[in-house]
Design a protein around this nucleic acid. Structure first.
Lengths: 160, 160
DNA sequence: ATGCTTGCAAAACGTTTGCACAGGG
DNA sequence: CCCTGTGCAAACGTTTTGCAAGCAT
C-alpha cells in the first residue's frame, strides 16, 4: 500500500531534498533522511505527531523536536505542502509532482475530498490581477457535508 | 475611527445578538455584551487575545475564558466569521451585513486585501455539485505580494 | 576539528476546563 | 429561587527552545 507510484518519484524526491539541503548549506543527516522516508510512506494528509508515531513504530530514534524542525525544511524544498484543516494541528501533504488541488472537508465525518484547482487557479489570477497582487499560492477549502453523510442525515448541514 | 457606519448597524447587531441568545435560551449577560461591544469597536480582523486587551484597556472586567466562550456564540449568531491566517491564532472578523468576501495576504508586509466572492461562491457550488457535496461555507485565501511591496522589491515573490 | 544538528526536557503558546461563586430570568 | 454564566487558575496539546553531547563535512 506504499509508494505505489513507483520508486522513480520517490528517488527523485530524495534527490531534490539532498540538493535543497546542499544548496542551503544544511547538512544531510540521518534524522532528516528518516523524516523524509516517513512522510514518503505516509503520503496522505498527516500531522507532525503522526510522523513521530510512524518512526516510533519502526523503532527509528528521531526526537520530536527534530521532526518539528525538519518538516518546514521539506516544505521549503517543495516536497511537502502545509494544509490547514483546523487551528490545533498543522497538516501536511506530499506536494512534489502532484497536480495542484484543494480540499472539501466534511464537517460531520471529517472526510477530506480533493479536487483539481485549474479553475481556482484561473480565478485567483484574475482576481489578483485586478488588485496588482503578485500571486505565489492559494488555499481554498470548501466546508460542508459529504455525499454519504448527507444521505445518512438528510437534515444535516442546512444551518446558516 | 470607530463605528463610522453609523449606529444603525451597530444597533441592529446588538438586537441580532440579543435575539439569538433568547432563541437559544442563553442568557444575555453583562460579560457577553461587553465582548460584543469590543468586537464592534475592533471591527477589522482580530484574535481573541486582542479582545481581551481591548477590554483590559477599558478596565472592563471580563475573564479570558469568557471571551473564548463568547466568540463562538457570536459566530453562530452570524455576527462574526472565523478567518484563519496562520495556524497559531484563530482570527475573526465582523461578518454581519458584510458582503461575503475573501482575502489576499501579502507575505511581505502582512497586509490583508479583501475581495468579493461572488465568483468564488459560484465556482465552489459547481465543484461541490460534481461531488455530491453539500456546501455550508468556504475559505479562500490568496498568498503573494501586494502591489506596494512588489513595487518596492521588484525581485520579491518570484520563488516557487 | 569545527560548528551545525540532535534529543531530551522544559518552556511557551493559545485555548479549554473544573470549580466555587455570582447573577440573570 | 434555580440554573446558567462567570472568573480564576490550573490543565491541555501542540509546537518551540535551551542546552550538552553527537556527528557530518
Amino acid at each position: 500500500m506504499r509508494n505505489e507510484n513507483g520508486g522513480d518519484r520517490t528517488e527523485r524526491i530524495r534527490r531534490v531534498f539532498q540538493e535543497y539541503l546542499r544548496g542551503r548549506n544544511v547538512k544531510c543527516t540521518d534524522a532528516r533522511r528518516k523524516v523524509l522516508e516517513a512522510v514518503l510512506d505516509l503520503r496522505e494528509h498527516f500531522e507532525a505527531e503522526q510522523v513521530l508515531y510512524f518512526l516510533r513504530e519502526r523503532s527509528e530514534r528521531v526526537g520530536k523536536a527534530t521532526v518539528y524542525r525538519t518538516l518546514p525544511l521539506l516544505v521549503e524544498a517543495g516536497i511537502l505542502r502545509e494544509v490547514r484543516f483546523d487551528v490545533k494541528h498543522t497538516h501536511y501533504e506530499l506536494a512534489f509532482g502532484e497536480a495542484p488541488h484543494d480540499h472539501m472537508v466534511c464537517g460531520r465525518c471529517g472526510r477530506i475530498i480533493e479536487f483539481g484547482s485549474n479553475e481556482v487557479t484561473k480565478l485567483r489570477s484574475k482576481i489578483a490581477r485586478q488588485h496588482g497582487f503578485r500571486v505565489t499560492g492559494h488555499r481554498f477549502q470548501i466546508t460542508g457535508v459529504c455525499k454519504d453523510c448527507a444521505a445518512a442525515f438528510p437534515a444535516a448541514g442546512q444551518q446558516r
